[in-house]
Computed example of a mutant assay.
Amino acid sequence: MLGLLLLLQVLASCLWLGHSEVVTAFLGPCAQFFYAQTPPSGALRPTNAARICQVYDNKYRFATLYDRNRRIPVYSAYIYQPGNGSRYDRWFVEPQLINETYNKNMDEEDDIIRRYQITSADVGKSQAIDQDYMNLADLDRGHLSPSSHHNDDKWSWATFTLTNIVPQDRKLNQNAWRMYEEDTMSKNSQGCDTTYVITGAVPGNTTVPSGRVNIPSYIWSAACCVKDKKPLKAWGALAENEINKNVVENLTLGRLETQLKKLYNGTVTLFSNSCTQE
Results as ranks from 00 to 15, higher is better:
163 T>I: 14
165 I>G: 05
166 V>N: 00
166 V>W: 01
166 V>M: 01
167 P>L: 05
168 Q>C: 12
168 Q>M: 14
169 D>N: 15
172 L>Q: 11
174 Q>F: 04
179 M>Y: 15
179 M>W: 15
181 E>C: 12
182 E>Q: 15
183 D>G: 03
184 T>K: 12
184 T>I: 13
186 S>F: 04
188 N>V: 03
188 N>F: 00
189 S>F: 10
192 C>D: 12
192 C>M: 13
192 C>H: 08
192 C>R: 08
193 D>T: 02
195 T>H: 02
196 Y>F: 09
197 V>C: 07
201 A>F: 14
203 P>N: 03
203 P>K: 01
205 N>H: 02
205 N>C: 00
207 T>N: 05
208 V>D: 03
208 V>C: 03
208 V>K: 02
211 G>R: 08
212 R>H: 04
214 N>P: 03
214 N>L: 07
215 I>T: 01
216 P>F: 12
217 S>A: 10
217 S>Q: 08
219 I>T: 00
221 S>F: 05
222 A>N: 06
222 A>S: 13
227 K>V: 02
229 K>N: 15
230 K>Y: 03
230 K>L: 13
231 P>K: 00
231 P>E: 07
232 L>N: 01
232 L>M: 00
232 L>R: 00
234 A>N: 02
235 W>V: 05
236 G>T: 06
237 A>I: 04
239 A>M: 04
239 A>P: 03
242 E>F: 13
244 N>S: 12
245 K>E: 12
247 V>R: 09
248 V>N: 02
248 V>E: 00
254 G>P: 06
255 R>A: 15
255 R>D: 11
255 R>V: 14
256 L>S: 08
257 E>F: 12
257 E>P: 11
258 T>D: 15
259 Q>A: 11
259 Q>I: 04
261 K>E: 13
262 K>M: 10
264 Y>N: 05
267 T>E: 14
267 T>I: 08
267 T>P: 02
268 V>F: 04
268 V>W: 04
269 T>M: 09
